[in-house]
Nucleic acid binder design. Structure first.
Lengths: 225, 225
DNA sequence: CGTGCCCTTTACACAGATTTTACACGCCGC
DNA sequence: GCGGCGTGTAAAATCTGTGTAAAGGGCACG
C-alpha cells in the first residue's frame, strides 16, 4: 500500500486529510512538526509527502529544499499545501521542485485526485510489481508462471529469467553481454551461442507469440515496443 | 530550444501566451483548432503542449485522450487551460493524465513557472538522453527505433549508427573520414563509396524527410541546422 | 549408481547486411 | 557550353550474424 506523510500544524486539517487518505486506500501518517518527519523518513520512506508551507518550527520551503538535497529523497514526490493564495508562494514552491501545490481550502476529492496524478507520474516506483503483461503474455514472478494467450507454458529456470528480464525492459534492446551479466550473472569471455539458444527455445514454447521477441541484428534482443 | 504548442481559440490569449513564451526563451507556436495541432505534431513534435479545454471543433479533453493513446505522444507533457473553475473539470483533466492545469485568468509569470516545473519533471524521468529529435525525426537509442513523422522506420545497424552520429552533431558537417572513424570504427585506406551508399539508403527509408540529410559537396554530410 | 533434464558448446547453412564495382548525372569553374 | 570531379544509384560480390540441430557435460533426484 502507498504510504503518504502529511506535515501540517493545524490539527483539524491534518486529521481530516489523514482520514480522507485512509478511506481512499492509502496509508497515511500526519506530523505536526518537521523534526518528526525527518525521523520518520529514514525509518519508513513514504511514496509521497504533503507539505504545508507555513509551519511553526521549520518553513515548508526549507523542508522541501532539504528533501531535494538529500539523495534518498531527491525524487520523492512532494505536494505543497498553502493557505496563502499569493502567486509568489506558488512560484517559489514550484521552482524549488515541488511536484504540485494545492491552495487551501481544498476539497478532499481534489486532493486525492492530485495525489493520484502525481503518484502516477512518479511511476509508482514504490509499488512492487509482480505481474508483467505484454501482448497476451503474462508473467508472474510470485507464482513463477507464464501465460501465453491464456494458456500456461512451462519454462525452465533460465528461460523464465530471460523472459522476465526482457519484459522488465519492454521495448528496450538488450545486448547479449547485458543479458549474460543480468540473467547468467557473470562475465563471459569469448563468443557463445548460449543466449541465442535460450531465445530459440523461448520462442518455440511461446508458439505464435514467439515473434514478440525481436532480434536486433548486431545488437541484441528486445520484446514488444 | 524547447518548443511549445498552444491550442487556444481566443486570439488575444493565444497571442499573449505565444509572445510571453518567446520572451521567456521558448519556441512557441499557437493553433486555433485541433486539426492544426495534429498536423504539426507529426511534423515537429514539441516539448510541451498547452491545451485549452473549451475549443470549437474538438474538445480539449478529447485531444488529451488522443494524445495519451498514441505511443509517440504518450509521455508528452500537457498542461490544460480552463476558463471554468469547476472542480469537475479539474479532476477530469488530471485523471486523464494532464501534467498540470491552469485556471484562467492566469498570470504570465505563473504560466512560465508551471511550464518550467512540468518540463523539469519530464526531464528527470529520463536522466540520460535517449531520444534525439530533429524536425519530426525521433531517434531512440534504448529501443533502437527511429520515428519519421510519427511512423517507425526500420534501419539496419550501420544505418542506425550513421543517423545517430549525424543527429548527435546536428548542423555540423561531418567528413566521410570522420564518419568512417566514428561509425565504422577504423581507418579506411583508399577511396570508397561506402558512406554514400548508406546515406543513400537512409534517405530512401526516411522518405520525404530524407532531404534533411544535406550533402556538402567536397566536405561531407550534415543533418538539420 | 543410473536416469533424465537442463545448460552449454559446436558446427554449419542461409538470409540479410555490407562492401565493392561500375557507371550516370549534376555541379562548378572556365 | 565544356570538361572534370564528386556524388547518386544500381547491381553484383562478399561477408557476417543469427537460427537451428545435434551432441556432450553436469547436476539433481530417485
Amino acid at each position: 500500500m502507498q504510504k503518504i506523510y502529511i506535515i501540517e500544524d493545524d490539527d483539524s486539517i491534518r486529521d481530516m486529510v489523514v482520514y480522507a487518505l485512509k478511506s481512499a486506500g492509502f496509508e497515511a501518517k500526519g506530523f505536526e512538526e518537521s523534526h518528526q518527519l525527518w525521523a520518520a523518513l529514514s525509518a519508513a520512506p513514504p511514496s509521497l509527502v504533503l507539505l504545508d508551507i507555513m509551519l511553526p518550527d521549520e518553513d515548508g520551503i526549507a523542508i522541501l529544499q532539504r528533501l531535494r538535497q538529500a539523495d534518498a529523497t531527491k525524487n520523492l514526490p512532494v505536494i505543497m499545501l498553502t493557505a496563502k493564495g499569493t502567486e509568489y508562494d506558488r512560484i517559489k514552491g514550484l521552482d524549488l521542485g515541488a511536484d504540485d501545490y494545492i491552495t487551501k481550502p481544498f476539497s478532499v476529492m481534489e486532493l486525492i485526485s492530485r495525489i493520484r496524478a502525481v503518484l502516477r507520474r512518479a511511476g509508482d516506483a514504490s509499488e512492487k510489481q509482480r505481474e508483467y503483461q505484454i501482448d497476451g503474455i503474462v508473467l508472474n514472478t510470485d507464482k513463477r508462471t507464464v501465460l501465453v494467450q491464456g494458456r500456461e507454458i512451462s519454462l525452465t529456470y533460465k528461460e523464465f529469467e530471460l523472459l522476465f528480464y526482457l519484459m522488465l525492459n519492454e521495448g528496450v534492446v538488450l545486448t547479449r553481454d547485458k543479458l549474460l551479466n543480468e540473467v547468467w550473472g557473470f562475465d563471459y569471455n569469448g563468443e557463445s551461442r548460449t543466449v541465442d539458444m535460450h531465445i530459440k527455445s523461448l520462442r518455440q514454447k511461446m508458439g505464435e507469440r514467439g515473434n514478440r521477441i525481436i532480434t536486433v541484428r548486431n545488437v541484441g534482443y528486445k520484446i514488444g515496443g
